[in-house]
Write a protein that binds this DNA or RNA. Structure first.
Lengths: 104, 104
DNA sequence: CCTTTTGTTTACCTATCGGTTAATTAGACC
DNA sequence: GGTCTAATTAACCGATAGGTAAACAAAAGG
């Protein structure tokens, strides 16, 4: 994943089960870092790194309340990713279509 | 991307602009490795590795005609990825929904 | 058989990833 | 100020990613 374009960063962020599980957790509402980390068999710094990846991808935002840093799902980039995949829908839905498919 | 579950492999494959461009090319029809490599400023082995990544993700298949290995788009896994993203649609569409969101 | 074309495989290199432990920052609380 | 809790940063580690050049394999075509 040595690329820096938006879509690569977003897909890269999604390419890890821990990070997808974090997104699923945040879909139920905001949570602090410790709350997010609780289900995982890894240390806090590891979770902190995952959160940084998600933040870089624009998939979460972080607030500040005292010493807590509540994280919140930001689903906008998922829409861009979904739009990308949507362009391929003809290829998994129908049998054969001639593809109007603009650049990635 | 050190994970091996299907979704991680697919998202990992998509997390590179070269590989997405290859998919876009194959959306216009099958192509040989040299045809695929032609637009890119990299060596053939590099393209060959990208193709292997795409093949592992189930996103392409390869045939055999004499010394040519024609590649073909296999969009099935993109549907699974799209289904995953689809579960988050309420979070980018509407304002606030209570999320019925099963595990990743 | 030799050569050309097509593509893969084999080292190799550097950078990034995902994880750890230890140290550090920052705010709450007494 | 001292201490507890929350979270990040720093330093380190082994494994993987993405690229190269060079060697190899396999089929076509003289």
């Amino acid at each position: 994943m040595g690329a820096e374009d938006r879509l690569s960063v977003v897909f890269g962020a999604l390419a890890d089960p821990t990070r997808r599980a974090i997104l699923a957790r945040l879909a139920e509402g905001p949570a602090t870092v410790n709350e997010i980390a609780e289900p995982f068999a890894m240390t806090l710094p590891a979770v902190s790194k995952h959160l940084k990846v998600l933040e870089r991808a624009g998939l979460i935002s972080r607030g500040r309340q005292a010493q807590w840093r509540p994280c919140k799902l930001e689903a906008g980039p998922l829409r861009e990713a979904s739009d990308f995949l949507g362009r391929y829908r003809p290829f998994w839905q129908g049998p054969i279509q001639d593809g109007a498919l603009q650049a990635s």
